Computed example of a mutant assay.
Amino acid sequence: MKRKTFLRSAAAVASVAAVVALSACGGADSPDAGGDGGGGGDTISIGFSQVGAESGWRAANTKSIQDTLTEENGFKLSFSDAQQKQENQIQAIRSYIAQGQDVIAFSPVVETGWDAVLQEAQAAGIPVILTDRAVDTEDDSLYESFIGSDFVLEGERAGNWVAENFDGESMKLVELQGTTGSAPAIDRKEGFAAAIDGTDIELVDSQTGDFTRAGGKQVMEGFLNSHNDIDIVFAHNDDMGLGAIEAIEAAGLTPGEDVKIVTIDAVKDGMQALADGKINYIVECNPMLGEDLAEIAKKVVAGEEVEKRIVVEDAEFDQQQAAEALPDRLY
């Protein structure tokens, strides 16, 4: 996958360190998040705090990181699952600081409330790398780099497709938002709203489904009970869109026909639903960030300059394109 501002290097660093990876059951509140910090020789010790395991996208993202940050690639990985709780991530980061990790990386549950713990990492001389989601801070020296997608642009792309196909038809639209306060939820909503502004597409309701399939189904059931003649669903990720499909079918309606569905992510389950005609359009959000994270970690440990913002170049898919892409889909 191409990057707009960063080209991967093929270099690898030899290592004989053991890989340490906590399971989701260990959680970020485990007293020993794995690893003893300060890997010897050329080994880079890195502590990574993941948001959780809320979606197929997140599972693919975790796999990419764990499959890349291995001893063969020169890393000693300590992994923790925050289970969608900011306090768990903060505790994990402080644990990594205490362990003296060479690098700390994490995907923030929400945008705000990170300055204090990031200042602690900075004071300890440990560089921080953000993956997938950014933080809202006035001091961008608190982290070395952000690696991920342009969430505003993703929302705009989804909104542009809706506007191009349904403006002029007085359509009623509902929105399934991601986790409240998270960067993708905030940005995708903003981008989508800007794209449909000035059209006669009416947003009649918008609620969070927490990026989960179960949440998407539950909220969509509520939408269907509260509103007549819903024409379009915009889901901030595939999993919520898949949950919406279940609710729509249970109501005796046909997803993709009676109710159009637009989502973001392009994981296999979502792409299959698109190929089957149950989803109408998907904007990709590439979860395969492991190689970029490995390369940036090596550079910051070596004292090299890195790009402050590394943006993933994502695709878009209609039904035919999804069917063509599915056989070779990695996630």
Rank of each mutant, 00 (worst) to 15 (best):
K2G: 15
K2C: 06
T5G: 15
T5S: 14
F6H: 13
A12M: 15
S15R: 01
V16I: 14
A18W: 01
V20E: 12
A24L: 02
G27A: 05
S30Y: 09
D32C: 15
G34E: 07
G34S: 08
G38S: 12
G38L: 14
G40K: 14
I44P: 08
G47H: 04
S49E: 02
Q50G: 08
E54S: 03
G56W: 01
W57S: 05
R58D: 05
K63W: 01
S64R: 06
S64W: 05
T70M: 06
F75E: 11
K76T: 10
S78A: 09
S78C: 10
Q86F: 03
N88M: 12
Q89M: 10
A92F: 06
A92T: 04
I93V: 10
R94H: 15
S95D: 11
Y96V: 05
Y96K: 02
A98Q: 12
A98G: 10
Q101S: 15
D102R: 07
I104Q: 03
F106Q: 07
P108T: 07
V109Q: 06
W114V: 13
W114Q: 05
A123T: 08
I126P: 05
D136P: 03
E138H: 05
D139Y: 00
D140H: 08
L142F: 00
Y143N: 05
E144M: 14
S145Q: 06
I147R: 00
S149A: 11
D150Y: 08
F151G: 09
E156T: 14
N160R: 13
V162H: 03
A163C: 09
E164Y: 03
G168M: 04
E175P: 06
E175R: 11
L176F: 00
T179P: 07
S182T: 04
A183R: 02
R188M: 12
K189A: 10
K189F: 12
E190L: 12
A193I: 09
A194N: 10
A195V: 03
I196M: 04
D197N: 06
D200P: 11
Q207I: 02
D210N: 06
F211K: 00
F211L: 00
R213E: 08
R213A: 14
G216V: 05
E221N: 09
L224M: 12
N225H: 09
D229I: 15
V233L: 11
H236T: 13
D239G: 04
M240I: 01
G241M: 02
L242I: 09
E246H: 02
A247I: 06
I248C: 03
E249L: 03
A251P: 07
T254K: 14
T254I: 07
G256M: 04
V259H: 03
V259M: 03
K260L: 09
V262I: 15
V267S: 08
K268T: 13
G270L: 06
G277A: 06
K278W: 09
I279T: 07
I282T: 13
N286M: 09
P287F: 03
G290R: 01
D292P: 14
E295H: 09
I296T: 15
A297V: 11
A302N: 12
K308E: 15
K308H: 13
D314M: 03
A315T: 12
E316R: 00
E316W: 08
F317A: 07
Q319C: 06
Q320A: 15
Q321E: 08
A322Q: 04
E324S: 02
E324T: 01
A325R: 12
L326E: 02
Y331V: 08
